[in-house]
């Protein structure tokens, strides 16, 4: 596992992919967050984290690409020849992915919250429970969405198809909900990883939300767990 981790880390830092993806995630997240904080809002904390809505797309696509991209180039053959324990490779990729998301997610969220605190009126104290939960929750949510992407990548083994699936999974609920009967819309909100997962960033009128902050993050975690498990099974049983 240590050798796999070292190999994957070397891979990550020797191609431009991460160097493009990571600043993009930061830029999208901070820019949208700051813009949202200048508008008036009932939930100023949630607004100050609006950038996560966009940053998550880049995170998810990066999660898909980190494994599925190797099927496109054919590199996967070399990877599994050097490291025949395929689940070790998956674990090493997950660790590298999470390290990258944390490295870029934590500063992005901190900047977003600080900007919100400065720009929005009636922003709660930075040390208040609600702000800390929303901030740390946003980082945790980005990590889970990255793992959802990795799991989908392992399942579909194509970066393009995987990106399509994961972006569809993120966007479909937002597009669908206004068209649905309110009862069904609430269920879509509760069950889809993006809407339920981002409930962790809400700080106002929690009783009125279709799902609470922590159960919501739990739904996103369940998606990540199930997709990674299915992906791991696929990786182990199928021919390369």
């Amino acid at each position: 596992m240590r050798a796999a981790l070292r190999a994957e880390w070397t891979k990550l830092r020797t191609v431009p992919d991460a160097a493009v993806a990571l600043p993009l995630i930061a830029l999208l997240t901070v820019a949208v967050s700051v813009a949202a904080s200048t508008a008036s809002s009932a939930d100023v904390v949630r607004s100050s984290l609006m950038g996560v809505e966009l940053g998550q797309a880049a995170v998810a696509v990066w999660g898909v690409q980190i494994l599925a991209g190797e099927y496109g180039s054919g590199l996967i053959t070399a990877t599994f020849t050097a490291l025949p324990r395929r689940l070790g490779v998956l674990a090493a990729k997950a660790v590298c992915l999470l390290a990258g998301i944390l490295a870029v997610g934590v500063p992005s969220i901190v900047i977003s919250v600080l900007a919100g605190h400065r720009l929005a009126s009636a922003y709660p104290a930075l040390s208040s429970g609600a702000v800390l939960r929303a901030g740390f929750g946003a980082v945790a949510y980005l990590c889970l969405i990255g793992l959802v992407g990795l799991g989908i990548g392992a399942l579909v083994r194509s970066a393009v198809a995987g990106a399509g699936v994961v972006l569809g999974l993120q966007l479909a609920p937002t597009v669908m909900m206004p068209l649905l009967d309110p009862h069904w819309a609430r269920w879509v909100y509760r069950l889809s990883p993006s809407t339920a997962g981002q409930a962790i960033q809400s700080t106002v009128d929690l009783k009125g939300l279709p799902i609470g902050p922590w159960p919501g993050l739990g739904v996103a975690a369940a998606w990540a767990f199930v997709l990674l498990t299915l992906g791991a099974f696929t990786l182990r049983t199928r021919d390369v």
Binding site: P16, D17, E70, L75, T77
Partner: peptide
């Protein structure tokens, strides 16, 4: 083993 000389990421040296 050398089985697929194309098994490379094009962007990596």
């Amino acid at each position: 083993a050398l089985i697929d000389p194309g098994a490379l990421q094009p962007g990596r040296s």
